[in-house]
Design a binder for these strands. Sequence first.
RNA 1: GCGGACGUGGCGAAAUCGGUAGACGCAGCGGACUUAAAAUCCGCUUGCCCCAGGCAGUGCGGGUUCGAGUCCCGCCGUCCGCACCA
Length: 832
Amino acid sequence: MASRFNALKADAAWQKVWEENRTFAARNDSSLPRAYVLEMFPYPSGRIHMGHVRNYTMGDVLARYKRMTGHEVLHPMGWDAFGMPAENAAMEKGVAPGGWTRDNIATMKAQLKRLGFALDWTRELATCEPDYYGHEQALFLDLYAAGLVYRKESAVNWDPVDMTVLANEQVIDGRGWRSGALVEKRKLSQWFLKITQFADELLEGLKSLDHWPDKVKLMQENWIGKSSGLTFRFALTNGSDEIEVFSTRPDTIFGASFVAVAADHPIAQAHAADNVEALAFIERCKQGGTTAAEIETQEKLGYDTGLKAIHPLDASIELPVYIANFVLMDYGSGAVMGVPAHDQRDLDFARKYGLDVRRVVAEGDKTDPVFDGDEAYTGSGALVNSAFLDGMPVEEAKRAVIARAEAEGWGHGSTVYRLRDWGVSRQRYWGTPIPIVHCDACGPVPVPKSELPVELPHDVTFDVPGNPLDRHPTWKHVDCPSCGKPARRETDTLDTFVDSSWYFIRFASQPDDKPFDREAAEKWLPVGQYIGGVEHAILHLLYARFWTRALKHIGMLDIDEPFAGLFTQGMVTHETYKAADGRWLGPAEVENGVEIATGQPVEIGRVEKMSKSKKNTVDPEPIVDQYGADAVRWFMLSDSPPERDLPWSEAGIEGSWRFVQRLWRLFDGLEDAEGEDKALDRKLHQTIAGVAEDIEALSFNKAVAKLYELVAAIEKAAPSASRTNATRALMRLVSPMVPHVAEEAWAAAGHDGLVANAPWPAVDPALLVEDEVTIAIQVNGKLRDTLTLPKGTDRAATEAAALASDKVVRLLDGKAPKKVIVVPDRLVNLVA
RNA sequence: GCGGACGUGGCGAAAUCGGUAGACGCAGCGGACUUAAAAUCCGCUUGCCCCAGGCAGUGCGGGUUCGAGUCCCGCCGUCCGCACCA
């Protein structure tokens, strides 16, 4: 008789069965078609949050569905385990970063297991373990040997109190986010990876990624920022120097009225060497803020060096050379030609300093060389006031100038990217040690691979600021691998984005003696479906794409793109609550719009991403305790489309729990019966096909809606063989989403084996089509009636049926319609 | 500023190619069962009106079409990314 589904008991029992049977361990030697389903691995911050639950539930449904449809599925999990929070914990709580991280991993792994994810835990990895990062060091050395790694002086954000380098995101209003100290620009020797060498490949490769969101591809395209134009040189009247500039508008070269160089451009530096005013100006440029708002409001400032540049196409034209605060040293060549008439920024600058503004592109019928107004003309048109270019359209003129520059040898067509090389040095302890030894005699020397991994020391202290590796008494003192003399280890560690740039390859195979087995990696890769947050749209995904291409470049792996399919899921959100005195309150502190502790009304704020600072988080674990894993999983898949935000609600999770119980009542009441129920057969097969389609499109909310409909239809149906069959099929249909109740029901119904191993129900195509259709009858485009006709009724019969409708007869009032549109099996529109 | 996405009931949403707008869920209302409650089941639930019917309705204003949530033009709003990029 109808019992309750005891989720707590069933969850644990089935999770144990899956684990003991190694149900979800992927076989590398399988002959089945492969499916690699991967969710972005978590940072072990302490506890699983709702965002993880949503992310991993989506991947899990897909992974389980793929297994049911005959695929060998690789669905692994690991830990992105290096990073700052572990060091912060060490500083604040005096715990060891390694111990803290491993404790967190243990906690979070147990939490993930309670959700019943079909993960291959035999392939679990943590990037903070030497058996992972040692191989990473080997790969780093391979890239180094191939010339893809180099070292250069680079400006960094230096926090003088914490004695550390800060990432741009860690600098808030010019101050360190933690110390509050004014951040300095400091030049440090840093390790770089030559991602720019692959800029064009990474850009072109985007075109092959048909299963990526356009949004992400566009973001990467903009990030790479390819521009083509002309790189050319201005000679100076002093005869000694030259200035190289890059322009995307070489066509406007006759409109140039000044040349501007960056504050740290060699010309500016040389000029300032014996000029106090110039030096002061350069200092002033450096003080400018770098936040978006500051840049927007910052005045365009220039300093006239008195130098004159000679126009390459007309030696009689001399252009003043300015040092300008808006010219960036690290883009192009750090110098620009200013064409005020056709560039807004140049125009603002020219007006401010009273420079010529010469029109060289006709704007409609305006061809006057004197350009009026304060809005630069950037549109198309024919060249004017430009000697041999006159009359040419913009694009043709660009080509003509480039051709002339190349013929005369003062410039060449070139492509410039916004993308910079990837600085991977971090002056931190909790990261992968860079496997290099610095020797006074030999310079930087790679650590021999036989000596890898270079392990992090455990006896480090965090009681004083700075890099613990650097101040460790012995760790950095080693002999040079090349000459044997005393030398120093590199004490920088690698950016954690390096760790996540190849973990998906390591999942495919995990040999002890090398980073990966090439054959196994090439069998599994690329990842078929990668799922994660959109916040990784640029950095992680670009770095992983670069790393994969770099491995191909050095002949280690023949894969172009690591992720064939990408899906970026929305966040889990919740209302925010604020007490009258401005304190944020957590959902547990509020009931019926009143703060429980004080009885005071609270202000209910907007629905936002769950965040600790606004206290609107809901911890998944107690929810799993209360409702069971299936209800939580079902909630994560219901209602909101997966790419959109999902508002968490207590009512919603209760609804999901009720549905799990409703399923169980249906399964528990399974009985054998006789007779056919054609309508239910149809509904079942439409659902099988529809849910499959929805899961493959990751439209889980639609699959959920279809399953609700099927459940309602089975409940309503009278006992029949069809109903029994549909109920058994339903167990399989819901099993990717709510696997525990499905296994429980599957076993109770006397099936052999696990529902996790059962095949997806087969579809009978004959049952997908209805034999009757409802036809809409419109008069003048407005719905007036509907009628049911056999599917496939021809036009004439459909029209006749429509004209016979009582309502139509009344509305037409005896008149014949002027026009009749018949769409068979859909509608009839009578135009009166 | 540049680039992009989105805008549908009280709420989350659906509507595959231009063809019955609001499937499905949540919340709400009414009823059945019950001593009662919970659970469950049944029904209603876009708005308005002269309520067996009708009118309006997918951010706003136009347009194309027999027919527009869907296509086109112009606005408004929200969100996201980039940002002195030459």
